[in-house]
Simulated assay, not measured.
Amino acid sequence: MAKITLGGTPVETIGQLPKVGEKAPDFTLTLSDLSTQKLSDFEGHKVVLNIFPSVDTGTCATSVRSFNKEAAEMENTKVLCISRDLPFAQARFCGAEGIENVMMLSDFKTGQFGKDYGLEFASGPFEGLHSRCVVVLDENGIVQYTEQVQEVADEPNYKASLYALLDE
């Protein structure tokens, strides 16, 4: 279990993020049109997993905007923004914000992604949602970088995650 804080109050996740050098677990998540997308669909691309509790919170929205602007412009890179929000809420947010360079994916059906990646909150008011994390994968799905933000209200280290895309 990872120990992090939410508003300064200690909370735990159900496990640990995959380790650098490991093959990332495949997943099946839902797009806004209710079709599915798997990690294996991105083979041959670098992938940034921007994971967060809900796009309806300020920090989560900022992370989507930031990755939309920065990482989405990088060559051969796909940015996947993942939460347990309903796909309709994700689509509404992207439409209102003009977000076009990232793919929003929802883990609303089963929450299995959060379990497989060990980042689901096990305690606190966000129990069952995803903690704020960034996982960067190379073209073969091998983990190159991970960050689980220690205080959920804080933004991830964009610079470090983007640097990991270049440093393979």
Rank of each mutant, 00 (worst) to 15 (best):
N140Q: 14
G124K: 00
V134Y: 02
E43M: 02
M1R: 01
H130N: 15
A153D: 05
Y163Q: 14
L105I: 13
A164E: 14
M104S: 10
E75A: 14
N101E: 02
I14H: 09
G58A: 11
E12G: 00
I14N: 12
E120N: 01
L29I: 15
G15Y: 09
T59W: 05
Q144C: 13
F126G: 04
T59C: 07
K23G: 03
S66L: 03
I51D: 01
G118Y: 00
L31W: 15
Y117N: 08
Y163G: 13
D56M: 05
G21I: 15
N157W: 12
L165Q: 08
F27N: 10
F126A: 09
I142C: 09
L166V: 05
S35C: 05
A61T: 12
K23T: 08
G124T: 01
K159C: 07
N140W: 00
L162M: 13
A153S: 14
E97F: 04
C81L: 03
P18T: 07
E73I: 03
P156F: 03
D26C: 07
K109Y: 09
L31G: 03
V64H: 04
P156L: 02
L166K: 12
I99T: 07
T30Y: 13
K69R: 11
P25Y: 05
V134L: 02
S54V: 11
K159W: 10
M1L: 08
M104C: 14
D56H: 03
V11H: 02
S54F: 12
P53N: 07
T5L: 03
T146N: 02
I82D: 08
Y117M: 06
D107C: 07
L31N: 14
V152F: 02
A164R: 05
K109G: 04
R92I: 09
F67E: 06
A71V: 06
E127L: 07
F126M: 14
V20S: 06
F121H: 00
S66E: 13
K46F: 11
P53Y: 08
I99E: 04
R92T: 15
D26E: 12
N101T: 01
G44C: 06
P156W: 03
Y145L: 05
D138L: 04
E127V: 10
E120D: 04
R132P: 01
E120G: 01
A2D: 01
S35K: 15
V149L: 00
D116A: 08
R92D: 14
F108V: 12
E73H: 06
L34R: 13
I4V: 13
E120W: 01
G118D: 06
V47A: 06
K69W: 09
K19D: 11
R65E: 13
D154A: 00
Q90P: 12
C133E: 08
A61K: 07
L119W: 00
C133V: 12
T57D: 09
L86T: 01
T110S: 15
L137P: 04
S66A: 06
N76D: 15
N140H: 12
K115G: 14
K38R: 13
E70C: 08
A160C: 03
T77L: 10
T5Y: 02
D56L: 05
L137G: 13
T13S: 02
E139P: 15
G141M: 03
M1A: 11
A122C: 05
K109Q: 13
F126D: 13
Q90G: 10
G114E: 07
F126E: 14
G7R: 04
D116P: 10
S54I: 11
R92M: 09
V79E: 09
T62S: 11
L129Q: 09
Q144G: 12
L105M: 08
R84V: 14
G128N: 10
E70W: 11
